[in-house]
Each structure stands twice: as structure tokens, then as C-alpha cells.
């Protein structure tokens, strides 16, 4: 019985941790599918986390926070778009520039506005996205199996977690079932053909960046207003890069990307539970090694799957219209 409780707790934290990863990975997916490499996910996430926490702290409403987080992230996404599309600059350098800029700017502004040494005030529950009970969760609690699965595992997450999972079919539907999605994918594979068909490559890529900005904004907001209760320095802690790795592992496809995010989140949850646990033969694993685990797994996965063959063909290459 204790084993089952362990599994349930582990799955529960996996779902919780996976939300920002899924949203950020989908953001990266939309950008790369349109031909723009977005290594600045990390920075956008951090910026959105700060924007959301600051706005929620001032207004007392998580919705104002979410809106602010999304706006900040969209502005940065458009900046990256401008560099990549209009300036034909190096997309990796641009992404790193955004990461570094935000790493400095968020604590600077937090310090100037709240004077708490680079963080935002702790958010009350009213200013956060707190756990919501799904319908009938309370009444089904006593039912064996169903109660554990539905009431304990699926119910009681924040709205942003449910939104994150809902975004997966939505993004898949947009990409594969709409005309806009077809064009967006085409612009990442063969922009010349899209251009020849009389459709604007520039506009499509900007649209993709806006979508990426919105998703990444939700991801950052989830960090500071749902999982956490306020902004702290460097709180994205490499999750943007992990999301990028999940997207590559998921071969630029929504559902496999979701599974990759769940795997990374599971390893992260496991890492939390392994601390201080003693194993037969090897004894206690030092905490630093469990922290390494997601990154090592990423490298092993990337080594096992030659990912470059599936990458959108025009991804990372600025489009130059021949005159």
C-alpha cells in the first residue's frame, strides 16, 4: 500500500512540475516549426515569471499577473523575431542575449520596485493560481481506485496545469488541421515555396513568434504564480533549456514532446524523492548526482536518437528573398 501511495505522490508532482515544461516546449515547437530557433525560452520564461509575480503582487489578482507575464514574453518573442526575420541576425546569439539580459533585468527591476533584494513579495493565495477541485472529486474520494486516480491524482492542480495539457491537442490541431498550421509548417520547411504561393513568410514567422510568446508567458507565469508564490532570482533554473531538449526528443511533434516533458518532470520529481533515501549496495546517492539526472538523461537520449534529421529544414536560416 505504501508503494502505491509513493507512486501516486510521484505522479502527482510529475503532473505539477511538467506544466511549465510543456508550455515552454510547445512554444519552442511553434517557433522552430516556423523556422526560428528559439534558445531564448529560458529568458522569456524568467521574464514572464517576474512580470506575472510583480503584476499579481501589485494587483492582487493572478489573472492580471498572467496577462502581464504573457505580454512581457510576447514582447521578447517579437524582439527575437525582429532580429531573426528583419535583421537576419544569428538566432542563437539573439536567444542568448535575451537570456542574459533578462537574468540581469528581472532582479534589477525587482530590487528597484520592491526593495527585497531582487525578488518580489510573497504572494497570498488570492493572488495565485491555487489548486482547483474537479467536479465530484470530493464525493468520489472514498471509491477505491477511482478515488485515488481521479480525486488525488487528476484533481487538485492549478488552472495553468490543466491549461498546459489542453494546449497540446490545441497546438496539434492548429498545426495539422488548419490552413494556418499547414502554412506555418511549410514556412519552416520550404519558405521559398510559401513565398512563391504569394503568402508572406515574414508575417507567418511573426505570427509563430507571437504564439510562442503567449505559450512561454503562460509557462513563466505558472512558475511564479502557481508552482511558486512569487519571483525569485534565476527561478527558471534551466527549465527553458530542458524544454528545448524535450522538443528535440519529441522530434518537433506535439504529443511526443508532451511525453518527453512528462519524462523529464518524472525524473525531476523522482530526484526530489530520492534525496536521503538509502539503496542496497550503493547506499545513499549524493543529492548533486540526482540533480544531474535530467541533464544526463537528455544527453543519453540525444545520443541515441540522431535528432537532426527531423528538424524543420529551414529552421535557423534567415529567409532572403531573391530579387
Amino acid at each position: 500500500m505504501e508503494f502505491i501511495t509513493d507512486i501516486l505522490l510521484l505522479s502527482d508532482s510529475t503532473l505539477r512540475i511538467s506544466a511549465p515544461l510543456i508550455l515552454a516546449a510547445l512554444a519552442g515547437l511553434c517557433a522552430e516549426r516556423a523556422g526560428i530557433v528559439d534558445i531564448g525560452l529560458e529568458g522569456k520564461m524568467l521574464a514572464a515569471a517576474f512580470g506575472a509575480a510583480a503584476a499579481a503582487a501589485v494587483s492582487g489578482s493572478p489573472w492580471v499577473g498572467l496577462f502581464a507575464g504573457i505580454m512581457v514574453s510576447v514582447i521578447l518573442a517579437l524582439l527575437h523575431g525582429y532580429v531573426s526575420i528583419h535583421q537576419r541576425g544569428n538566432q542563437i546569439v539573439s536567444g542568448m542575449a535575451i537570456n542574459i539580459m533578462v537574468a540581469g533585468l528581472a532582479p534589477t527591476l525587482a530590487n528597484a520596485w520592491f526593495s527585497l533584494g531582487g525578488q518580489t513579495p510573497l504572494l497570498d493565495n488570492e493572488a495565485r493560481f491555487t489548486a482547483i477541485d474537479l467536479p465530484f472529486a470530493k464525493s468520489l474520494e472514498g471509491v477505491p481506485m477511482v478515488g485515488a486516480l481521479y480525486s488525488d491524482l487528476l484533481s487538485g492542480h492549478s488552472l495553468l496545469t490543466y491549461l498546459a495539457f489542453a494546449m497540446v491537442p490545441l497546438v496539434a490541431w492548429i498545426l495539422y488541421k488548419t490552413r494556418f498550421g499547414l502554412r506555418l509548417r511549410a514556412v519552416g520547411e520550404n519558405p521559398e515555396a510559401v513565398d512563391t504561393a504569394g503568402i508572406s513568410v515574414t508575417l507567418l514567422r511573426y505570427q509563430a513568434m507571437v504564439i510562442a510568446g503567449v505559450l512561454c508567458g503562460m509557462s513563466g507565469s505558472a512558475l511564479s504564480t502557481a508552482l511558486g508564490a512569487g519571483f525569485i532570482r534565476d527561478m527558471s533554473a534551466g527549465k527553458g533549456f530542458l524544454a528545448l531538449a524535450a522538443m528535440i526528443f519529441g522530434r518537433w511533434k506535439p504529443v511526443p514532446t508532451l511525453l518527453a516533458c512528462l519524462l523529464f518532470a518524472f525524473v525531476d520529481a523522482l530526484q526530489g524523492r530520492l534525496q536521503g533515501v538509502s539503496f542496497p549496495l550503493i547506499g545513499e546517492i549524493p543529492v548533486q548526482f540526482t540533480i544531474m539526472l535530467p541533464y544526463v538523461i537528455t544527453v543519453v537520449i540525444l545520443a541515441g536518437f540522431a535528432g537532426k534529421m527531423d528538424a524543420p529544414r529551414a529552421s535557423g536560416i534567415p529567409y532572403e528573398k531573391d530579387r
Binding site: 539573439s94 542568448m96 542575449a97 535575451i98 542574459i100 539580459m101 533578462v102 540581469g104 534589477t108 531582487g118
Partner: peptide
């Protein structure tokens, strides 16, 4: 204006001089 500000300046220099 804390030390973080120099990180901001670095980021902006990278953005304008490196990426554009």
C-alpha cells in the same frame, strides 16, 4: 543600481552588437 545592471548592459551589447 546593483551588479545585475552590468549583466543587463552585457545582454544589450550582445543583442545589438552580436545579434544585429
Amino acid at each position: 543600481i546593483t551588479r545585475d545592471m552590468s549583466v543587463v548592459i552585457q545582454g544589450l551589447v550582445i543583442l545589438f552588437a552580436g545579434a544585429m
